[in-house]
Structure formats: C-alpha cells, structure tokens
Amino acid sequence: MQDIIAGFLRFQAEVFPSRKQLFKELATSQTPKALFISCSDSRMVPELVTQREPGDLFVIRNAGNIVPSFGPEPGGVSATVEFAVSALKVSDIVICGHSDCGAMKAIATCACLDTMPAVKNWLRYSDAARMINEAKPHADERSRVDGMVRENVIAQLNNLRTHPSVALALAQGKLNLHGWVYDIGSGSIEALDMETNAFVPLASHPSARKPDGA
C-alpha cells in the first residue's frame, strides 16, 4: 500500500502540475469517444495499451471482460453500458480479452470454483462461448484456453447487442462494435473481422485503415 500512496504523492507533485490544463478541462465534463470493456487482470491496462489520455476512454473492467445480456434486473455493467451509449454518446465499444486470462482458463479447464461461488455464477455469462469452444478440436490446453478467450469476446459482443441502447444506436448507424484480444507477452492485438468471424492482426484489420469519421 505504501507504494500506491507514494505513487499518488508523486503524481500530485510532479505529474499533475504539468498536466494542469487538461485536468482543469476535465473537471466539469467528459466526452470519451469509446467505451472500452476489458478484464480486471492487473496486466491489462486499457489506457496504457491504447496510449489514451484521461478523458478519452470510458472503461468497464471485470473478471473475464463480461457483458451480461440485458435483463429485468440490470446490474452495474448494464447501467454503465447504457450511460456510455445514451448519455455520453460514445461512437465505439471495444470488448477486449487477453492471453492467459484466469477466468477463461477456469472455464476451459473445468476448474473447481466451489470456493468462489460469486465467480462461478458470474462466469455463467460465458456459457455460450464455453459450449462452442468445447465443440472444437484443440491440440493442447493452451490452445483450448486461447480458443475460449476468443469465443468469449464473440459471445460478449452478442450479449452487448441485446441491450436496448446499443441496439438502437447500431440501428441508427451511430455505434460500432469491436472485438479484440491482447497478447500480454508480445504486446500485439488481434481484432475480430465481423465478416469472416476470424481474428486478424489489428494492423491489417479493416478498421485500422478506416479514417476517423468515415
């Protein structure tokens, strides 16, 4: 904890003064362009990976980068999605999985989660991805986990589309959805090609060649 406190004091004394104008502008409003949904894993830091400034991303982080499908009792994720789309008018939503994801590894390897009932129940929102991944052949455990990570991103995008605010914005052409997988060891990102349902290097993905606002 002392390291965290020391970090804040260093931010307050050294970083904040040099970025004072930015934080002054952010003090009364925010206009993020994208909602970024990622895992809570400490190795995945959305702002670092995307090199974004404070105020650029509206972020949801949870175990397994999960978005429950819309239901009669919406929770915090649903409320945050709705606020991002309806109030902040974000133009893009990214769901980003990552390599060596503990949540997806637990699902892929059928790990016993009896001592973590909340985690066990939460991961049921990945049941569709689990069933699809189990139906595919895998050379080894790593391949099975990697497959689960990717299928989960696809499944959560499908869950996201059930949210009324998202469905409306998509129908009006005001919102774009993106599925990414970040590899911790190499620093690379693969993006889902919605037409082929395959993950390709982000640098060669159509969205990487599409100018902003096009």
Rank of each mutant, 00 (worst) to 15 (best):
D212K: 04
A135F: 02
S42N: 04
N133Q: 07
L157E: 09
A169G: 09
V49K: 00
P68Y: 04
S204E: 14
V166G: 00
L26V: 02
V166S: 02
N133A: 10
E141S: 12
L157H: 04
V181S: 03
R142M: 11
K120F: 06
L202A: 09
A171C: 11
G7R: 04
K33C: 02
G187T: 12
L113P: 03
M104L: 14
E134M: 07
A108G: 08
D127W: 02
P117I: 07
I4K: 01
D56A: 08
M131S: 14
E25D: 13
K210V: 05
S99Y: 10
P206Q: 03
E151W: 11
H138M: 06
V77D: 04
T31M: 09
R209K: 12
P74G: 09
S188D: 02
F58W: 12
L177A: 09
L57D: 07
H163D: 08
L113Q: 03
L157N: 07
D114C: 10
P137E: 09
K24L: 05
D193T: 06
M116E: 08
L175A: 03
A191P: 00
R130C: 08
G147K: 04
D140K: 01
I60T: 08
A63H: 10
V15K: 14
A108V: 10
L192I: 08
S69M: 12
V145R: 00
L192V: 01
E73R: 11
P68R: 03
T80C: 11
W180K: 05
A118V: 15
P137H: 10
I37K: 00
P201S: 12
H138C: 06
A13S: 12
R61L: 13
L168E: 15
H178R: 05
F23D: 11
P32A: 06
F11A: 12
V59K: 00
I154K: 13
M1L: 11
A128H: 07
S86N: 14
A108Q: 05
I107Y: 02
N158V: 15
V81H: 01
G102R: 01
E47N: 14
N65W: 02
Y125R: 08
L48G: 03
S29R: 15
N158Q: 15
M131N: 07
A27P: 01
L177C: 10
A167C: 05
L175Y: 04
T115V: 09
V181P: 01
S42W: 10
A198L: 10
D212T: 01
G64S: 05
V153G: 07
G71T: 15
V85A: 02
L48E: 13
L113V: 07
S186L: 12
C39L: 04
